[in-house]
């Protein structure tokens, strides 16, 4: 039983993440095309996913499954509250299973969650991080109008070397 759709898009829907989705999550976060860009270094089994589900997915922040119109899961998108309440600031995160890269689901999902964050949750600022080696991710934020705010040098270690991490930000009123 898939969860209900929370946000409807043109060719992408965002629905709630349910216990039945744990296997999909596990397969995604272990995939080399996903994990090397999210700093996930240890293998994640179903028990790890169960724990993640109970503590994070069922927590206060927003986590949604990215699907196409046939309810096929593609990846997940998250909106995490950062700072204190007066900061009205959220961090966006997302991954799409590499099997489904290049179809625009990541871009559309991001666009939908950004609109939701500004127009329904009244955020003032949103930001996202991307490894400098992850061009597709940077393109999403650039195309959606985020400003490249800074590069943190050697901010993480992945694939045998230190890597820069880029911060992208958008302030309310800048969303087109």
């Amino acid at each position: 039983m898939t969860g209900p759709v929370f946000l409807h898009g043109e060719s992408t829907d965002l629905r709630t993440i349910e216990e039945e989705d744990l296997e999909f999550l596990r397969n995604g976060v272990n995939h080399p095309g996903v994990r090397i860009y999210m700093g996930n270094r240890a293998p994640q089994n179903l028990d790890n996913q169960e724990e993640f589900f109970e503590e994070v997915i069922c927590g206060e922040d927003v986590h949604l499954m990215i699907c196409d119109k046939n309810e096929e899961s593609k990846g997940i998108v998250s909106l995490k509250h950062q700072g204190d309440r007066p900061d009205r600031m959220g961090e966006l995160g997302l991954w799409v299973h590499p099997e489904f890269h290049g179809h625009g689901h990541g871009s559309e999902a991001s666009k939908m969650i950004i609109k939701y964050a500004f127009e329904q949750l009244n955020y003032h600022r949103l930001y996202a991080r991307a490894y400098e080696s992850n061009r597709p991710s940077q393109k999403i934020w650039e195309r959606l109008g985020f400003e490249k705010e800074g590069t943190l040098r050697d901010h993480t270690y992945s694939e045998g070397e230190y890597k820069n991490v880029i911060y992208y930000g958008m302030i309310e009123g800048e969303n087109q």
Binding site: P4, V5, I17, V62, H63
Partner: peptide, 26 residues
């Protein structure tokens, strides 16, 4: 499941007191 469908319907979540956050079945 019915409550999920109800509360997350755009017309409903825009009019009720609680904030429009997604809730899964658990």
């Amino acid at each position: 499941e019915f409550l999920q469908q109800l509360i997350q319907h755009k017309n409903v979540r825009d009019t009720i007191g609680r904030p429009p956050k997604p809730l899964n079945r658990n």
